[in-house]
Design a protein around this nucleic acid. Sequence first.
DNA 1: CATGGCTGCGTAATAAACTAA
DNA 2: ATTAGTTTATTACGCAGCCAT
Lengths: 217, 217
Amino acid sequence: MNHGPTQDQMMLISQLFPSSAYTQIISQQGENKKARRRRNKKSKGGENGGNEMNKKRKLSEEQVNLLEQNFGNEHKLESERKDRLAMELGLDPRQVAVWFQNRRARWKNKKLEEEYSNLKKINESTLLEKCRLETEVLKLREQLCEAEKEIQRLREPIERVDPSNSSSTSSHESQSMEVVDPPFLGEFGVDVYDDDVFYVPNETHYFNGMEWINLYI
Amino acid sequence: MNHGPTQDQMMLISQLFPSSAYTQIISQQGENKKARRRRNKKSKGGENGGNEMNKKRKLSEEQVNLLEQNFGNEHKLESERKDRLAMELGLDPRQVAVWFQNRRARWKNKKLEEEYSNLKKINESTLLEKCRLETEVLKLREQLCEAEKEIQRLREPIERVDPSNSSSTSSHESQSMEVVDPPFLGEFGVDVYDDDVFYVPNETHYFNGMEWINLYI
DNA sequence: CATGGCTGCGTAATAAACTAA
DNA sequence: ATTAGTTTATTACGCAGCCAT
């Protein structure tokens, strides 16, 4: 909620200063806001190598913009472009390289998430379709049954005893009409949400899990 | 492309085994390989805050073991346990906390991947099922059609010369699986679809595996 | 064959946004 | 409102696999 002015001011400042006193500014902001932890108490390094470092980074908006733009053009980074970018941004070429690496990773992740969501949609449609088909099958069976009975009826007066064509259980018209029988839809139990997470983090109404099925049974 | 097995195996190993030999291997390799690149040539800090890099990184196998074990017990970490662990491991409690954070994130990611794979399986079965149902619907329609014809024939055997109908009493189960298409399905007043509009584009393209993904890359 | 450059992967550490007590 | 712990996003490191020079 209360970002206060610091946020925007930060941006401005970082734009003005291509990253010279930048890191300072950040920590200032932090303290300004609420005495962000300054834990440097003890490295207490036992067997492990002592860990005491304090490097703050965060590229400026400007820098990220340019990088992002370049990334949009081409995810790969030839050393030429890298150096040029580093120069323009006032960064270590290494940083540029690292940034690109990380960006690629992020991109990949995002892509995968996207695919997941697509698959989910497809799956939902398919399930729906399957459901529809199931009811249609039931209906058709019923119709067929009726037709069979009709045939039976039509034939009976003519062909007296003809057990060959008996087929079906139909004693008479007591079939379904109301017994649409198998809910069955189970098929693959696959409790999708066995324990915790399985929520669609994204927008609007896309039924979680298989809840939507309930609407059809 | 062909990373060979190593890549995935590594991943697997590091996931399955609480990092048993993983880090070990790494450090071994590292030392073994001797000075594998000392890329500290130039910090070239330039105008950017000169990040004089430190060398930290990589908890020891032992440490990771214990952490992993504790994580298995409980993903959350009360400060009590945190401190205890830190003590036992000779680490900064901070590090323990960080480790747990990162571990949770990793775990979540893994979980999501799992979900993805599950979903994929579900999708495949559903697709298969749908396919099955589709053919069944076709079959039933055909049967129904035959039955209708039969009824027609039985009802008005006198009228018409009926040059067709060579195949009498069609109790055929399955015939040509390809002809059928007639929207038909009236007769018994059964407007099956007509209300539900699936935006499902398929019908025929059952993406095996992840082929469809290619469309998005 | 090694040397250096670039990449993917895993991971430690940090920062910021959030949340709950 | 302050504080501590959490999640999400980022930055950076180290390693191993490739592949050109």
